[in-house]
Simulated assay, not measured.
Amino acid sequence: MQTHEYRDFDAFADSVQGVDCQMMQDKPTKRIWSITDIDLGDTKVQHGQLGSANIVEGETAADAYLLYMPLTATCEYKFNGVPVKKNDLAILEPNSEFRFSTIVEHDFCMAVVSASHFADMEECSCDAKRSTVRVARGNLQSARKLCQIVHQILSSAASCPQFESKVAAKHASAALVRVASKVVAHELQQEAVPQLGRARLPRSEIIERSMALLEDVNAEPVHVRELATAAGVSERSLRRSFQEYFGVGPIHYLQLRRLHLINRVLREADPDANSVTEILAQHGEWQFGRFATRYRQLFGELPSETLRATRP
C-alpha cells in the first residue's frame, strides 16, 4: 500500500487510476490532496481525500469497470447529473464517458476491476463509447457488502505493510470481484438512471453541445449566450443543465475553466520570455488585479509566483 500526499492538484489528478480525464479544483479549503493505492493484481483500490470541490470530465478505461463509493455524508456527488450519496455505489462501465462534480471537499473509495470478470454479462462491446452511469443505492444488500469489503481491504493493508504480496490479497480480491459481479449483474438488469429535469433537449445533449464549442474555440473567451446558442437552448435551460451536471452555473464553470487553463500555461511558460500580463491578455483577461485575486484564492499563489516557480 502506498499513500501519496500532494499540494499540487494536477499531480493528484494524474494519480487517479482507471480513467483518462481532466480535473478542475474549486473552493479549496486545505490545499492538500492525498490518495492511497492498493494493488491486488487485476483489481485496484484507491482511497482519495480532496481538500477542495472538483469537476472531472473524461472516460473510463476500455478494459475495466470503475466502482465509486462516496464517503462524505455532507457532500453532494454527481455523475452525469445523477446524485450519488454516501453508502451508494456508482458503476461506470468500460469506455464510458462521464462528468463528475462535487461542491465541497470530500473523500472517496474506488475499485477498478478488470472487465474480464464481467465478460458473460456485457451488454455491448467495450469498443463503443457510452455515457451510462448506474447507481446501486445503499439499500441494496450486495452494494453495502461491496463497500464493506473495500473498507476492510483498506484497513488490512494499513495494518500489514506487505499485504499486497501476501496470499490474503488474492482472497480479498476474489471476494471483491465476487460481490461486485452480483452488484453489476443486478444493475445491468435495471434501467439506466434517467436524467433529471424535462428540458426540451436532454440535459446530456445540452452539455455535449456546450463542450463541443469550448473545444473548438480552445483558449478563446466564451460567453454564456454563445454556449446557449451553440446548445440551441435558452440561457435559463443552460444554467439548469450546468447546475445539474457540475453543481455550478455556466458563468462559474467558464471562470473556473479559464483559471485552470491559464494556470497550465503559466506552469509551462518560460519566465524569461513571457510576462504574466502578456499571458493574461492573450487569454482575454484585462482586469489583471481582479484576476490575480481570484487566481490566488483558487491556487494559493499569485500568477507571477506560478510563472517563476521551478518545475521538475
Rank of each mutant, 00 (worst) to 15 (best):
V84M: 15
V45T: 07
T74P: 05
T102D: 08
Q46T: 01
L92S: 03
I103N: 12
S96T: 15
E59F: 12
L40S: 13
G41Q: 03
S96M: 06
D39H: 11
G81W: 02
A73M: 08
A62Q: 08
A53H: 09
D63C: 00
Y77M: 05
N80T: 03
N95S: 13
I91Q: 00
A53G: 07
T102P: 13
E57C: 11
T72S: 15
E76K: 14
V104R: 12
G58R: 08
Y77L: 04
L66H: 00
N87E: 15
I91P: 03
Y77P: 10
V56Y: 05
N95F: 07
F79E: 01
G81K: 03
K85A: 15
E76Q: 14
N95G: 12
V104E: 13
E105A: 14
K86D: 14
P94F: 13
A62C: 00
I91R: 05
E97D: 13
A90D: 07
C75N: 10
E59H: 13
D63I: 00
T102Q: 10
G48Q: 00
E76F: 11
F100S: 07
G81R: 02
E76W: 10
S52W: 06
P70C: 09
V82K: 05
K85W: 11
D63K: 02
C75T: 15
K78F: 14
L67F: 08
A61P: 00
N95T: 11
L50T: 05
R99F: 07
R99V: 12
L66R: 04
L67A: 05
V84F: 14
G58N: 10
M69V: 06
L67I: 09
K86W: 02
A61K: 09
F100C: 10
A61V: 06
N54E: 11
D88C: 12
N95C: 06
A73I: 07
I38G: 05
N87D: 14
K85N: 15
T74S: 13
